[in-house]
Each structure stands twice: as structure tokens, then as C-alpha cells.
Nucleic acid binder design. Structure first.
Lengths: 198, 198
DNA sequence: TGGTAACCACACCGGTCGGTATACTTGAGC
DNA sequence: GCTCAAGTATACCGACCGGTGTGGTTACCA
């Protein structure tokens, strides 16, 4: 299902095995998303996780890797959450529309600051940062997911349709989180439906 | 043309009158956009502007205000640039499509990191930051611009159409800068054209 | 001629940044 | 009983953060 090109290199550090390591990643996920990656220092993170800085560096090695682990885990969760909301027995057209229903729920419950991957590309300027590969892979996966569904639904030019459906999703997310358009995901859904007669 | 609700309070500090002040804002505009607001310190900024830190604080008072001035100036420039590319004698439908042509050029020339307003909301978490008002006003202005053109073009439910057209613009910008979709703005244009028969 | 605004250079402030070093404790497995 | 991994606590590092204070120079303007 998931193509090679949309799989980031999953370093062992990305999925901590010790209790303290998991607590660090839990706290990091919350803090990085809510306050921004660059606004969260390692001292604060250690305090919030109930852990010493030494432990963080023993488990993850650097903030860069911890950030990548945070993005990797969020990406996994998003893929699981989204696909879990797409009925595999439903027609492809319905599954396409369901992605926007899922997005609407995602944004209104717990994710008002939009897409963590997009936010990370804004905060991370270094092109060699390990987090960039995670972001790239999620966006590629989303585009391929849409293109596959478009193909299955028998749409003309399914690759272009995949790009358009991705744009609608990204646009709804940004319009919601940056422009305050509460109904953005619903608008995107209606647009996709009208556009392709779904 | 520009409505009251989409005009931010234009503090005097937002438009510097002295040569050194202008050099600071020039350097800030470049650095903040390219490297991110939080990644640019005042020492670096002073050096790049060929100015002492004292001068920056004499002119602007704080980094917060300088950031707001940077956003304010970019917003002004964007509004001017965009409206300059919309032929007032052309039918509204054509003007709608022209916004995506303008966006395509905007992104490919000098603005590969996407929308500075969106990027700022990611980096700024403080809800009282003066830059937030600037961002809010630009997004409101864009939405009203689209809704007005939709109304003039005789589209059904012009307010909803305005939201959808905004989503297409935001989506194209994000898909371009975060997902690497080079043809995003062109796809958004084609989508708007098909959607509303333009 | 004497203010005054707009700069310059430079030193300084407390606080935080990512990251490291040293030394100690706890608990499970051989 | 010993080892070893996973923790703890605490102190430290140089660099940088946003921001200030002092004192001097230049040029225009009343």
C-alpha cells in the first residue's frame, strides 16, 4: 500500500523503547505542536517530561533527531487515523470525500494549529534536517493516495486530480488555521464533490 | 476598495522615515522571510543592515513591532502587486483566474517559501503579538476580494465561492512550498475555471 | 551659534540556547 | 553477587537571545 518513495528512513531513535524515552516523545509532541519547535527549549522539555536533559540526549542524541521522531510519529498516526476512516468497501469517490470529513474532525478536535508537517517546514530552514524527509514523504503519500483513489473512481487525468485534491486539503488546513475559516474542510469537500461529480 | 475590517492599525513605526530605518526594514524583510522570524537575531540583523542595534531600537522599539512592520509592508506590497495584475476592465471571471496566474509568478520568482503571513502565524504563538492583526487583515481582504469578484461574475453563493477560491489559493501556496508541487498554482487556476465555468 | 535628530561605536545586562561532564542509584538478568 | 542499562541530580559550557546605557560625531535648521 505505502510506496517506497513515501517511506522515510525509520531510525531506531524515532521509536523509543524505554519509559522515559516515551515520556519525552509524548511531551515533545504536545509542546512542539502547540508552541512551535523553535520556541521549546530542551530544559523546558525535560521538566515537562519529568526527566533530566541527560536522559533526553542519551535516548535521542540531538534535538534534530527528536524533532524528526516527533514528526515521524505524527505522520504514522495521521496515516493510520485517516485510513481508518476510509471504508475500504466504499466506492473510491466516497472515500475521497471522506478524507475531508476526517480533516474537518482532525482540525476541530485537538489540531487547531493545522498541519504539523507544514509548520515544521516553516520553522526548519536547514535543507539537511532529518525532519524534512518525514514531511516530504507524508506529502508524497497524500498525493499518491488521492491519485490512486481518483484512478479507481475513473476520473480523467487521475494524477492531476490527485494534485488538485491535495491542494484542496492543504488549502482547507491553511485557511482554517491561518485565516480562521471554520468551515474550510466542508467547503473543500463540497468543492471536490461538485468538481468530479461525486 | 479596501474595507475597514481588513485594514490593520498602521502604527507610525511600521513605515520608517529615516535611511537607517529603511535599511533595517529592507534587511529584516529579506532575512525574516528566508530564514524565519525566530531564527534571525537582532545582532545579525544589525550587521546585515549596516546599522547598530541601538539604531534599530531607536527606530522600532522592539522586535515585535519590527516583525509587525515587516508583515505590514509585505502585505501592502502584495495587495498592490496583485491588484496591479488584475485588469479592471476585464470581466470578473477573468480577474479571478488572473489571481492564480499572479500567484504562480509570485511563488516562482522570489517567494519560494510561500506566504509570509501564514509562516508568521506558525512562528508566532502569542495571540497578542501585533503581527497577528496584519495577518488577519490580509486574509480577510483576500476572502472579500474573491467574494466581490464572485458576486460581480454572477456566481451562485458568492460568499461560499469566495471561501473556496481562497482555499484554492492557500492550497496552491502550501502545496508548492511544503509539498513541492511546482504546478500547484496552475492546477488551482484550472480548478477554479472548471468549477465555475470561467 | 546653539539645538536637535540621526546616527556611530562599544560595552554591558540577565536569561536562555543546545549540549556535555561527573557522580550516584536502582533494578533486572546471568 | 556482579554487570549493565536506565535512570537520577547537579553543575557547567560557549554562544546567542532581546534589550539597554554611555558617550561621541555629523549635519541641518532656527
Amino acid at each position: 500500500m505505502a510506496l517506497a518513495g513515501s517511506e522515510p528512513a525509520a531510525l531506531p531513535q524515532y521509536t523509543p523503547t524505554t519509559p522515559a524515552g516515551r515520556r519525552v516523545l509524548d511531551a515533545a509532541s504536545r509542546l512542539f505542536y502547540d508552541r512551535g519547535i523553535n520556541s521549546v527549549g530542551m530544559d523546558l522539555l525535560a521538566e515537562e517530561a519529568g526527566v533530566t536533559k541527560k536522559t533526553i540526549y542519551d535516548r535521542f542524541g540531538s534535538k534534530e533527531i527528536l524533532v524528526a521522531a516527533y514528526l515521524y510519529r505524527r505522520d504514522r498516526y495521521w496515516r493510520e487515523w485517516l485510513t481508518g476512516r476510509l471504508d475500504p468497501d466504499a466506492p473510491a469517490g466516497e472515500r475521497i470525500l471522506a478524507t475531508y470529513d476526517a480533516l474537518d474532525e482532525w482540525l476541530h478536535h485537538e489540531n487547531p494549529r493545522g498541519c504539523a508537517m507544514v509548520n515544521a517546514t516553516v520553522e526548519i530552514t536547514d535543507p539537511d534536517h532529518p525532519g524534512r524527509a518525514v514531511v516530504r514523504s507524508q506529502k508524497q503519500w497524500m498525493r499518491e493516495l488521492y491519485a490512486d483513489m481518483a484512478r479507481e473512481a475513473g476520473l480523467d487525468e487521475p494524477d492531476a486530480a490527485g494534485g488538485t485534491l491535495l491542494i484542496l486539503g492543504e488549502g482547507a488546513t491553511t485557511a482554517f488555521s491561518s485565516a480562521g475559516v471554520e468551515e474550510a474542510a466542508r467547503l473543500a469537500r463540497d468543492t471536490a464533490a461538485r468538481l468530479y461529480g461525486l
